[in-house]
Design a protein around this nucleic acid. Structure first.
Lengths: 206, 206, 206, 206
DNA sequence: CATGAATGAGAATTCATTCAT
DNA sequence: CATGAATGAATTCTCATTCAT
């Protein structure tokens, strides 16, 4: 009994839904998008949608997981390519390849925050949030601690705490960016301040 | 001519609703609380509730406004009492009277963020968010700039940008505190890092 | 124990409510006006309003009754003044003093129809409707029959049936006038047709 | 790809709702019927009902549209069959196949009037009313004008105005029939008067 | 597997009427 | 008498989820 449809076909269909749903979530936010929105955007039937994702939460988590995978892949490549300096590595981790502050932010970030904040009383969601947090924390902390051991960074501050404060600040930026007009957040300038701070805190040589 | 009930009674009733609603919002968050929740908690009838607040948004904004008033009053008093050093003033503005990092956070903060983030596509809500942001920004910026002019703080960094980054970081803390278990946010430690950073950025003497 | 307030005062108050309510009913129609609308327009308190009229239906009926009284008074005067010809009498009864078709209609007529048609399943309302119908019928019929007896009108058609058809046609006009744009109803022209018809049916000499 | 249920099934279901709703509207009138009434009568769930009709207004308009279609079909057939005399055509248009006054009236007529009269301040409803009026007007006017051109009717009166007055009178009849007891309206007799009038106005030969 | 019709719990809001002061 | 706060029944509409075909 071979499956009626190929695995690729299923994968394609799923990918199409994920992509369409991402756009919908970006546009309407997590709470306000309905399964109907997704159905229409992905051109799937109700039943079809539920075949792949058993509810809105599941769908959103799938999007997050997919993106995490991509993110991890990027980081892995980063680690392979450029280890000239941990400082550069840290910057590219924070700001992407350009290693420079930009006035752009992941368009899904707002819905992301929304997802976790509206679900903060739900244990499942809390666990998921924590998992993701731990993951990100480890990522930053590893880089910083490696830099400290190599002597590139100072040991004055705990690497983990610096990592935490990076995440906190970026979360704050994402939040304000979601809520306020661009003129108010000054994404770029604030990012520069963050770099400035890190340079001081880590006593980066150069 | 003679009103049925005294003005105080009305105020009391309103206050009772506001208080009860605050607890409900703290417990369930903004999106998840329903007017029914509030009715039950405040022991008011449906109609009674709607007499005072014409919908959930209105009710929540009333709570925010009430709290802002209290906050402003506190700040005013602060300004009258202690102007020994702008550094102290800034700290008491950030952490309250104790001027010290604590592991406690305004319990309504989470719903607050939720309110603004789920309503980020609503113009009315955006305006409201911006208004509140501007208000807070001015508050911090004024203190910092006064400190700079007095020579207590360095001019190296723009006072306004520092003010912005304080807000961003605090927002990030509130967000993470809402979502993650206490052990992860390390409110107190991160607050200390913030102080450390400000000390560096403002080149506070002492 | 003399009453605390004079009877005139009460009458004035009542009249004020009736007048304001009339305007409100004209503007919003019967179903759509709320007691709140009336309260605001008449500048009375809720309780005050209910003191005079125990509900919306009662209020509306009071308005109708008041207007009927005025109408009856006018007719009485008509009868005293001008009995030169029953034809003239009939016309002034239908079109008012001018005895001529006009493009204007009692502004309350629409709410009137609405009142009776939405309440057509209510026995009380039906009775009231019938009462008013009988009254109007008698009015027209009396004039026509008197004209027939005087020889001014022909006996070919039953006076009562003509009276009925006058009412029916006027009701139809009121209805169409309420619903359709002025251009479509052609109130004046249709009224002229009615006269034309009556002239034929009654074989009016002149 | 394969739809769950046949198109016929959907049509049947829709038809069932329309039919049930028609009965409900006849019984309670437009304003007084609630979607719950319809749900119960049609044995549909709330969601099911809203799947087909997005609100009460939509539902009612659907009923009207369905009936208009039937009406148009009947007229078309009429036109094909009997063009012996325009007079007969006119009568069958007014009174149906029997061409004779009857003491019966479309049971939905009352709700129909109610629908338009309670919605007279709503632009959408007004447009709809006008559209329907224009349609009916053209229908009558066409017949009369054709009769005038053929010489069967006199040109003395404008065909369009006669058409208007027919509609006005029928509307009046429907109104009175909705509100008053049968004994008062005398539908049959008044219809005869209408015929009499038309015969005079059009100077019908025979 | 895919479809989309059907379900029904639940939330918001309105308003006539009552009644304590 | 007058006031207007309080009540709560009633209604509309939405949407996640199920399930027969």
């Amino acid at each position: 009994m071979s499956p009626k449809v190929s695995k690729e076909h299923l994968e394609q269909r799923r990918a199409k839904i994920v992509e369409a749903a991402t756009q919908v979530f970006i546009e309407h936010g997590y709470e306000r998008t309905t399964m109907k929105h997704v159905m229409d955007a992905a051109d799937v039937s109700r039943g079809g949608l539920y075949q792949y994702f058993s509810n809105k939460e599941d769908l959103f988590e799938a999007i997050l997981a997919d993106r995490l995978l991509i993110d991890v892949a990027k980081t892995d490549q980063l680690l392979k390519e450029k280890v000239e300096s941990y400082w550069d590595l840290l910057l590219s981790r924070i700001f992407g390849e350009s290693k420079e502050p930009s006035d752009h932010m992941d368009p899904l970030a707002a819905s992301n925050l929304e997802f976790f904040i509206t679900g903060r009383n739900d244990q499942r969601r809390r666990n998921y949030a924590q998992e993701r947090y731990s993951f990100a924390l480890k990522l930053y902390a590893n880089i910083i601690e490696a830099g400290q051991q190599s002597g590139e960074f100072s040991n004055k501050q705990s690497g983990e705490m610096i990592a935490r404060s990076i995440i906190t600040f970026i979360d704050g930026l994402a939040l304000d960016h979601a809520i306020l007009p661009k003129e108010d957040v000054k994404l770029k300038e604030q990012s520069s301040l963050l770099i400035e701070y890190l340079r001081l805190a880590l006593e980066v040589k150069n």
